[in-house]
Amino acid sequence: MDSLIFLFLVQDGATNGAIYALLGLALVLVFAVTRVIFIPQGEFVAYGALTYALLATGRVPGTVWLLPAMGLAAFAIEMIGKGSRMSGREIATDAATHIGLPVVVVGATFALADKSASALTNVLLTLAMIMPLGPYLYRIAFQPVADSTVLTLFTTAIGVHLAMTGLGLAMFGAEGLRAGPLTDARMEIGPLMLTGQNIAVYVATVALIAGLWVFFEKSLYGKALRATAVNRVGARLVGIRTSLSGGLAFGLAAAIGAASGILIVPMTTVYYDSGFIIGLKGFVAAIIGALASYPGTALAALFVGVVEAFASFYASNLKEVIVFMLIVPVLVWRSLGAVHDDEEE
């Protein structure tokens, strides 16, 4: 094999792998805290990518209307559920986070959406539009069934995935979009050309992983999330609101999804339904990492990316088959090792 091709494929794979690592980490996070197998993770990627791509051309993306709609729905469900038992202050806080925040974001979007807006402005606007969707979504779809089986939560996630894909088509249309690179910088390392976008992907991945580490190790919220992941009932007994943890985990997942979308849309054309397959590759990584280990998932994701790069070079038609079949040996190995795991709840 040509060593240049080899290096090129490894580099390409590492870039994709970095994205899968981010998604895989988000999936592990959501699963650990809420037991939800978060299939709609990929939709956040597509939403983030397309929202950013539209903003970059000065247009106002449809996601801007989804935000207040979902905020309102979440607020209504909260009020119907326990509004009568809430103090005025609590209701005001709820209204601020579910209605006030979306209104501010809508205002900011219309004020700032312009062809001349800087990439940073567009990135921040995109994150502001997508991230709150996570907690709203948790409140609407998952919190009401939070204590049911993994299977029910999984099926709910599938329902959410269907609805979000359909909404994606409504908001963004069937055409794919691509955005300009975040930066035009380039760097040559030997025979390899690293684009600014490549570097942005690596930097963002490392920064997000470091950020997650600090969050989980150092902050009280992070510790609360970890406590919920270890033992829901125990966490509740010591005063952690597990619904809050769930919302937080979903918020982080939505933000990571949106960030991944922003990172990939300058490198590839993204369609309203592209996220699903991308998200599933994050899953392949997460499964290899046993849905539990963060470093394991990150390494597995790099591996998935590299395998994919080589597969698309040598057998591009069977690329997806090869990537998804990667989990088979892992499942076999785990199945042989599984003596008797704990009773399902």
């Binding site: 599933l280 599984a338 399902e344």
Partner: peptide
Amino acid sequence: RLSGHYLPLGTIAWGIS
């Protein structure tokens, strides 16, 4: 033989492939 969620995940990978 694996815990509950591996079967559905496995079938998703199978369905796509």
